[in-house]
Amino acid sequence: MKHPLQNRWTLWFYKNDKTKPWQANLRLVTKFDTVEDFWALYNHIQLASRLMSGCDYSLFKDGIEPMWEDNRNKCGGRWLITLSKQQRMLELDQFWLETLLCLIGEAFDDYNNDVCGAVINVRAKGDKIAIWTRDTENQKAVLHIGKTYKERLGLPMRIVIGYQAHADTATKSGFGVKNKFVV
């Protein structure tokens, strides 16, 4: 007997091809809704650290597309983990797996409904992992998710992680995006 998950999840893969528009590079890989099917998928696909630069994995609840424009994302934001180049070898895969386990195991107590999904961006200049939540105004939910996530990743107190609204990320580039919350 398989162990059912609370939610059905969809894994997406993005491969950068500059000759195509962003959405054309995004592929739905598969959906799953049991613990066993999650592991069958995870054990079968490439580790994030072995992906080519420019690639992303996204895991979202069924029905939510991994983009700002989706109705369930557009008022939301993300807890962002930025990694140095050195961390790819040591921590990228470990952090991403922990992120996935937080999502499928429903790790955020009363606030799991606020979680939309998670994204990992593999980039030469530095990798990023983020958990996306649905509403930047749900302060209690956002903060609880951020604190729990930081604990689960085993990040020390001195490391501060920030939460950014997608609306700000979409209109400002890189360093201009301000944190709405930090934990």
């Binding site: 162990h3 059912p4 066993e36 592991w39 386990l101 499928i104 195991g105 429903e106």
Partner: peptide, 18 residues
């Protein structure tokens, strides 16, 4: 209703079970 919650330990134990 009740939520189906799995902790890290349980999920990891399922990784290699047949």
């Amino acid at each position: 209703g009740t939520r189906i919650i799995y902790d890290r330990k349980f999920l990891m134990e399922c990784r290699n079970s047949p």
